[in-house]
Design a protein around this nucleic acid. Structure first.
Length: 467
DNA sequence: CTGGGGATGGGGCCC
DNA sequence: TGGGCCCCATCCCCA
């Protein structure tokens, strides 16, 4: 084996089929192939660095990179598209120019192309991912995704039952517990304590792409590039929807998690679990903030849409193909990737990504805002119905349905008081209410009641680090 | 098994 | 820039 390796290194081995070819076991052939590929790549990289035989000039924000068109063609969908247009003329050097990512970012990408090593860090991963998306390099996107995934570990769309049952140790374990598949991550490694990984959580902090997302993305592609849904011309800013396909989860998995999530929100948590949750949420917020902090430099790209005569600035999500007009909308959108849920319901501890969602949830679930009988669906008035309280939930029922179902024994309130319940919701601290606890917050103190029912919802945007 | 409806989440856009 | 509203899609429970 050593001899074979040495022969490979010296390129002294006979070519396959040539007389005198070594009769080696098949696995020797495999090793030779791998070594040969590595050797060849190294040679190409050397040629690139010495600018030998380079036939492609890439200008990135004024900085010139020289490369081989064959290599770029084989590595990037973008270059494949670009170079295939000028395939007839191989004598003239090909020129490409980019303004949407930095020279440093392209250096990382080019080094990866010629070495297979991706130099990712917490500072460049988003920009590299964005550039890779632009250049249609799915493998780089995948590596970046793994890097971010192993770093963030913060999808609140994961199984919240497991989320709630985490032991305290789960979040005190650090990089040393990283069990991420090194193969999947290529040469990428978690670089610092900032990027921790919790092995107890499922490897599923993925974007839960809905069918609508997929449809919308496909539709968007068709609108932008009707000639091809696989590849886009270099002028096109929005890229093929590979990320949606990669991020999307099986429907059954979503359902399972959805069911678990609903249970999870009402699961009584121990003190240790609560601490673990708080710490996890703290990490979520911290890392989300780190992500947001990098936004201005990474996703502001000019989109030239084929069907839009007026070029428009759009912001592209680094995790998927979604683009938005405003950075604020992108920040909001990113929450679906980061799992950040800064708006907890004080009544049931369920968390929401948006204040309006929390408000909607609060009014429908805890305030019985809908003037409709839950049973017969008829509209009820103050005279014809009452608010029935079921745990932390409140809903209205008409007098007839109350009598029919024998709900007289349940805690009830007059309609005029219904909107005043939440004044005591602050007393609930993330635990499922039952028995006396349920009834206790139904007894309200008039002094605490707000004039406007809208003020009943106590909005507390949680910086998870200090919940 | 299926359809209806409630709850939830996400995008667009106005203020 | 954030808040808020509207709209729509999806999930899930229940009859």
């Amino acid at each position: 084996m050593a001899m074979v390796t040495e022969m490979v290194a010296n390129r002294a081995y006979p070519a396959p089929g040539e007389p005198g070819q070594l009769q080696v076991p098949r696995w020797y052939h495999t090793d030779i192939t791998a070594d040969h590929q590595g050797y060849l790549l190294k040679q190409l990289d050397e040629q690139r660095r010495q600018e030998l035989f380079c036939d492609c000039n890439v200008l990135v924000e004024g900085r010139l990179f020289k490369a081989h068109r064959n290599v770029l063609f084989g590595s990037s969908g973008y270059f494949r598209m670009l170079l295939s247009h000028g395939a007839d003329d191989n004598t003239e050097p090909v020129n490409a120019s980019f303004e949407v990512f930095s020279p440093d970012t392209f250096t990382v990408i080019l080094d990866f192309i010629y070495s297979g090593k991706l130099d990712l860090s917490s500072h460049n991963v988003i920009e590299v991912m964005s550039a890779a998306s632009y250049l249609q390099m799915n493998n780089v996107i995948s590596y970046c995704k793994d890097f971010i995934k192993s770093s963030l570990e913060i999808s609140a769309k994961e199984d919240d039952v497991r989320y709630l049952s985490l032991s305290e140790n789960s979040y005190t374990q650090g990089v040393g517990d990283d069990n991420a598949d090194p193969e999947a991550a290529g040469s990428v490694s978690p670089p610092s304590a900032l990027w921790t990984h919790d092995s107890s959580r499922p490897q599923s902090s993925r974007y839960l792409a809905k069918d609508s997302d997929l449809k919308a993305a496909v539709l968007k592609q068709e609108l932008i590039s009707p000639q091809s849904s696989q590849q886009h011309s270099p002028e096109v800013e929005v890229l093929p929807d590979v990320e949606h396909l990669q991020f999307a989860q099986p429907l059954t998995e979503r359902r399972r998690r959805g069911a678990a999530k609903r249970k999870g929100y009402c699961t009584r948590s121990s003190t240790h679990e609560a601490l673990a949750i708080q710490e996890a949420q703290s990490q979520t917020a911290q890392k989300a903030n780190e992500l947001y902090a990098t936004l201005p430099t990474i996703v502001g790209v000019v989109g030239l849409f084929n069907k839009d005569p007026n070029p428009s600035m759009r912001f592209k999500c680094p995790f998927c193909t979604h683009t938005v007009k405003r950075k604020a909308d992108l920040k909001r959108h990113l929450r679906c990737h980061t799992g950040e849920r800064p708006y907890p319901c004080q009544a049931c501890n369920k968390r929401f990504t948006r204040l309006e969602h929390l408000r909607s949830h609060f009014e429908t679930i805890h305030q019985a805002r809908k003037l409709v009988c839950r049973k017969c669906k008829r509209r009820v008035t103050e005279l014809s119905g009452q608010v029935v309280c079921d745990g932390s939930r409140s809903y209205r029922m008409c007098t007839e349905c109350i009598q029919e179902t024998g709900c007289e024994n349940l805690p009830m309130e007059g309609l005029e008081e219904a909107s005043e319940e939440p004044a005591l919701l602050l007393g609930v601290d993330g635990e499922e209410e039952d028995g006396e606890a349920q009834r206790s917050w139904l007894v309200t103190d008039d002094d605490d009641l707000a004039e406007d029912s809208g003020a009943d919802l106590i909005i507390q945007e949680v910086d998870d680090s200090d919940e």
